[in-house]
């Protein structure tokens, strides 16, 4: 696997550049929102923003030099490795994101159960399905009792919450 070794030796700047690019973008946006504001609103943009921009520019310069000299590449593999985990990880991230979207329709308890069960099955590669389902059920039940029934938190309501409401 010569190519992997090759990329291992070179610094992977593609991934490392994400944070500075985000930081720069956000700082510029932030400054844009305070351009017309009184001085008190601009203080931080100057104190912090100017230093941050300077730091990012230095980083870009260092990165450019490394690229120029061939010591680094724009690869992103450090962000993604190890590759064999990738499908699981992407699936898990997608499930987490899905949790936040679906909760609006299915309600807090049911979505928590589905998320727990699905991600445990995904991460475990489908092993010990009973244990996964039982754990998910317990977690969802505890969440329901503690957060919805006991502390009456305003989580999105779904079939389970309406049922509990009707019963009480």
């Amino acid at each position: 696997m010569a190519s992997t070794q090759d990329s291992d030796e070179k610094r992977q700047l593609g991934g490392e550049l994400i944070i500075p690019v985000l930081a720069l973008g956000f700082t510029l946006y932030y400054i844009a929102t305070v351009v017309d504001s009184p001085w008190s609103a601009q203080l931080n943009a100057f104190m912090v923003g100017s230093v941050l921009i300077l730091l990012v520019l230095i980083f870009f310069a260092v990165a450019a030099r490394a690229l120029w000299r061939g010591e680094a590449s724009l690869g992103m593999s450090n962000l993604i490795e190890p590759y064999h985990i990738l499908p699981k990880r992407l699936g898990f991230i997608a499930l987490s994101l899905g949790y936040l979207i679906v909760i609006q329709w299915l309600g807090f308890t049911l979505t928590t159960f589905v998320f727990m069960a699905a991600s445990m099955l995904l991460l475990g590669g489908g092993r010990r399905p009973i244990l996964c389902l039982v754990s998910a059920t317990i977690m969802a039940a505890v969440a329901l009792v503690v957060f919805v029934i006991l502390f009456q938190k305003r989580f999105p309501k779904g079939p389970v919450e309406y049922l509990v409401q009707a019963l009480s």
Partner: peptide, 26 residues
């Protein structure tokens, strides 16, 4: 990289209405 992370954090911490005139920022 440490300083970039720290100052990025400070910048994120600057989000919100300013303390005097309540102008929304970022």
């Amino acid at each position: 990289k440490g300083l970039i992370a720290g100052f990025f954090g400070l910048m994120i911490g600057s989000i919100g209405a300013d303390h005097v005139y309540a102008t929304p920022r970022g």
